[in-house]
Design a protein around this nucleic acid. Sequence first.
DNA 1: AAGTGGTCTAGACCACTCC
DNA 2: GAGTGGTCTAGACCACTTC
Lengths: 249, 249
Amino acid sequence: MAKQQPLQFTLDRGSPVPLYFQLSQQLEAAIEQGGLAPGSLLGNEIELAARLGLSRPTVRQAIQSLVDKGLLVRRRGVGTQVVHSQVKRPLELSSLYDDLEAAGQKPATRVLRNTVEPATARVAAALGVAEGADVVYLERLRLAHGEPMAHLRNHLPVGLLDLGGDALEGTGLYRLMRSAGITLHSARQTVGARAATAEEGERLAEPTGAPLLTMERTTFDDTGRAVEFGSHLYRASRYAFDFQLLVRP
Amino acid sequence: MAKQQPLQFTLDRGSPVPLYFQLSQQLEAAIEQGGLAPGSLLGNEIELAARLGLSRPTVRQAIQSLVDKGLLVRRRGVGTQVVHSQVKRPLELSSLYDDLEAAGQKPATRVLRNTVEPATARVAAALGVAEGADVVYLERLRLAHGEPMAHLRNHLPVGLLDLGGDALEGTGLYRLMRSAGITLHSARQTVGARAATAEEGERLAEPTGAPLLTMERTTFDDTGRAVEFGSHLYRASRYAFDFQLLVRP
DNA sequence: AAGTGGTCTAGACCACTCC
DNA sequence: GAGTGGTCTAGACCACTTC
């Protein structure tokens, strides 16, 4: 746990990028690339600030952002040290389309339905609209390598997104939302399992009674508005969910 | 979206509780209890600081902590407003025992095995120890109202926890860890489903072929060390997972 | 006693949004 | 142009850990 020899940091005061952000990015890069070994001490904030020509609060802000990401640990009276890494994966709102694409699975989408319908009680409660109010209803089959993977049913507030044309064929819903300027913030999910009915099995190329993963999800943007309610079925033989959870003390 | 009339805040400078924390707690309480309506503006930081006799950075720190929790949104040039609530559930590392207890289900645990064994390759990789090194192996049956709910298999580093006696009968693993001074930080999980084998079905009182939820989880403490690797089976007819995910931009 | 992070102050200037 | 949050400074004192 020896103290690290000084690393090089270059700060550009003319850049529109905040100084604390420039520093935290370079620190993060140093950690990722092994320039800062797990468990090693970072050196005290005051000296670091002096060396960089920054004020201590600015340096603290940079360090704090990495503490929030779980890359650093601060201990009063001890110092700031790099986490005993092991893993530091991104936690993200999993998008099935992106997941499949990242895995090289060549995803495709077959839109089965794209209509406007009155909200049922359940959909209304999830989206925070009046029961019977118009909502967009979307039904899709997600394929990978031409094989069905999941049956996706979504409800969205009307007017949120333009889902005309074949925008949905070549990408996922979340990516469409992001490019429409919607900032996704959080989602509440329930994941369960059940046996496939005959109809579900046929749709997903599974025998009746095969285990299916179920997911219900409500997604919220950064203003706390529900932007999507989904009710999905996945072939358990082909797919599992990967999550990273953080503990809030 | 009218500006709120001033709320009462009481700050105790003699308290060991930080001022920014006192403020953020009272703000959070006001939001939860409806004293601050969803969408309402908080009033600018400078005036709020002056009114409370605090410096602006201190007020900002209080507000920022609530922004991080998703209760407030800041917009430059606009102001800080309360999120259009809808939901603001806690995101937590779900503990099956606590979940069941909170649901009034009277959980119980039957410890099937509590031994020290050499780590398999998979366990060693998950816990970050050498293959073949000693690890604690724990096998439990979790019951609710006397009915089996889940079959839990855990591996832990040796020496981390004292699992002697019947400490495990009346509580969950996470609670034991917390009371041992371990600060849990994050967990990586994989959730899937499969059909029950004959043996699994018998153990969980499900017919062979019934859908079971599977979960694998590695849990890390705040120093980034893996403190637990679990491989669990749940009756899908009785249990589903509830998560809240946050989006990291 | 020495060194660390935790908190707090009282200012400053800038970038963005809205009218 | 007025008002907002975003960033930054140069200090200060305190609480905790370690020796």
